[in-house]
């Protein structure tokens, strides 16, 4: 078995098991927790709509913080949009998803994907520089932050290396890319990257609690 067969086969498979089991483990573990008793009188009934509203509104910065957070917010948007496009709108990736989902969707031309990918990498590095230079951010950052950054940026870089090649053979660099994705999949449920799915739980919960208390959301 060569490296590419290993990457496409066992490595990706084990990573998929861990991603699925780990994500469900964390979700169920949180969703089945007992709700804290709230003895106060509810101001309004807090339904699913309130949760959805905050999931949406928290995508934008509240007015008082806009000026202060413009730079990191902008970078985070570039990074997240770039990441989304490279993962879900690159045609070979769509073929990968189609392989087990059975459905496909339209993709973007490769050159646009390369551009977005490079933008995401640049934004990621800018965010890392910010984390390392801001005293406050540096203080509150731990291994999880840096490792999560690393496993997210690694597949982006290895993926962008495929068209550039850099003296490596296509199948070798492709195998390295897939292995780096496997690493991301394995780490995703456990560290701060869990926000990929937990972001909806946390925002939703916040929305419902605030609604119940009549706070502005």
């Amino acid at each position: 078995m060569d490296l590419l067969e290993f990457a496409k086969g066992p490595a990706l498979q084990v990573a998929a098991y861990i991603l699925v089991a780990g994500s469900i483990w964390r979700l169920i573990g949180i969703l089945l927790l007992k709700e804290k008793p709230d003895y106060s009188e509810p101001r309004q009934s807090a339904g699913l709509l309130a949760a959805l509203k905050v999931i949406y509104t928290r995508s934008f910065t509240a007015a008082p913080f806009k000026a202060a957070t413009l730079y990191p917010k902008m970078l985070a948007y570039v990074m997240h949009i770039g990441l989304f496009a490279t993962v879900f709108l690159f045609v070979p990736h769509i073929m990968f998803f189609e392989g087990f989902l059975g459905i496909e969707w339209p993709g973007l031309p490769n050159n646009i994907i390369y551009l977005l990918g490079v933008a995401a990498v640049v934004a990621s590095f800018a965010l890392l520089v910010r984390r390392l230079t801001s005293p406050v951010l540096k203080l509150i950052s731990n291994f999880d932050d840096y490792f999560s950054w690393f496993v997210t940026v690694l597949p982006l870089i290895t993926g962008l290396m495929i068209p550039v090649r850099m003296g490596l053979r296509y199948e070798t660099i492709l195998a390295i890319h897939i292995l780096s994705v496997a690493l991301l999949m394995i780490w995703l449920p456990f560290g701060k990257l869990g926000h990929t799915f937990l972001v909806f739980v946390t925002r939703g919960t916040t929305g419902m609690v605030f609604e119940r208390r009549g706070a502005k959301t």
Partner: peptide
């Protein structure tokens, strides 16, 4: 199977949390 294992692990984690 991995999903089922995740549910089981989650239930155990939730019980411990409770």
């Amino acid at each position: 199977g991995a999903a089922v294992a995740g549910v089981a692990l989650g239930a155990v984690a939730a019980a411990a949390g409770r």
